[in-house]
Design a protein around this nucleic acid. Structure first.
Length: 274
DNA sequence: CTAAATACCTGATGGC
DNA sequence: TGCCATCAGGTATTTA
């Protein structure tokens, strides 16, 4: 599911858990890419959630002395139930359950198990990403001159470039194609060939599509769910992603699908010509 | 150092 | 109906 808008939607939907104290948990299935931090979580029993948080595509439950991260991988869902009475039956890939003293329950489901459950000491710490993460797209630190300077240093095609979390976090395969379409920039264009005007334009469109995605509750292609189980809406606003062969909404030219860095890219070869 | 390829895992879909 | 190949929101690790 999860690019920035989907993770932000999940994080916001988990807000009602703030103030609830952890009562216990069950790991129905372990054997993830990283082991579930059972000892760290056990140490939090009796302690309250103080906030919910997001950094890049990592959502977290914040405790007084650390963060429980639940990265959603490609197919993860985090569901919040207000009462342990009349809980729906456990589903096949509900792998972890958190129980709270007030009866609330959080279930982490992940069919493909590309997700990661991890603990870091200190609230609002950086997530356990393997590489140092770049700036948040909505952070004023990520401005036009910073972005342009980054662009000028690499010849990587712009589409995989903006998906690189070292450059800016949160942009995944859907929103990268959508932002480039709005900016009328070819996904194949080398990063260092963008002008200052292109950079400012693209930065604005990235922010625009991410904000619109959040407003729409994220894009549900298959797995994305809000914390209350509802699907997102923003897939209905996609202009190019998944639209291969369909007419461009601007000029009518059929949308083309190509592969870049092993990922599908969709674009209008007319509006987004080199 | 960068950049590209591969691996991780389950399930849906389409061709034959 | 079955079997095989391909593809899917991401990222950590390996290979060049």
């Amino acid at each position: 599911m999860p690019e920035l808008p989907e993770v932000e939607t999940v994080k916001n939907g988990l807000k009602p858990i703030i103030g609830s104290k952890l009562k216990g948990f069950i790991v129905h299935k372990d054997g993830w890419r990283k082991p579930v931090p059972v000892d760290k979580l056990t140490a939090q029993i009796g302690k309250p959630i103080t906030d919910t948080y997001r950094r890049a595509k990592w959502p977290a439950l914040v405790f007084e002395d650390g963060c429980l991260w639940m990265h959603l991988g490609m197919s993860g869902q985090i569901r919040l139930f207000n009462s342990d009475k009349n809980l729906p039956p456990l589903e096949k890939h509900d792998h972890i359950e958190l129980f709270f003293e007030d009866g609330k329950v959080i279930r982490f489901k992940d069919e493909r198990r590309f997700g990661i459950v991890a603990w870091t000491d200190h609230p609002y710490s950086e997530p356990p990403s393997s590489e140092k993460l770049g700036p948040e797209p909505f952070d004023p630190e990520w401005d036009d001159s910073y972005f342009y300077k980054q662009l000028s240093q690499y010849k990587t095609p712009i589409k995989p470039f903006i998906m690189n979390a070292k450059i800016v976090v949160g942009v995944g395969n859907i929103y990268a194609s959508e932002a480039l379409f709005l900016a009328r920039i070819s996904p194949l264009k080398p990063a260092n060939t963008l002008t200052k005007h292109d950079a400012a334009n693209l930065r604005g469109k990235i922010i625009q599509v991410l904000q619109a995605g959040i407003k729409g509750g994220g894009s549900t292609l298959k797995d994305h769910r809000m914390a209350n189980g509802e699907i997102g809406d923003y897939q209905n606003s996609h202009t190019v992603y998944g639209k291969e062969g369909r007419p461009c909404v601007v000029c009518g030219t059929p949308i083309v699908k190509i592969t870049q860095a092993t990922r599908s890219t969709f674009y209008c070869p007319s509006c987004q010509s080199d």
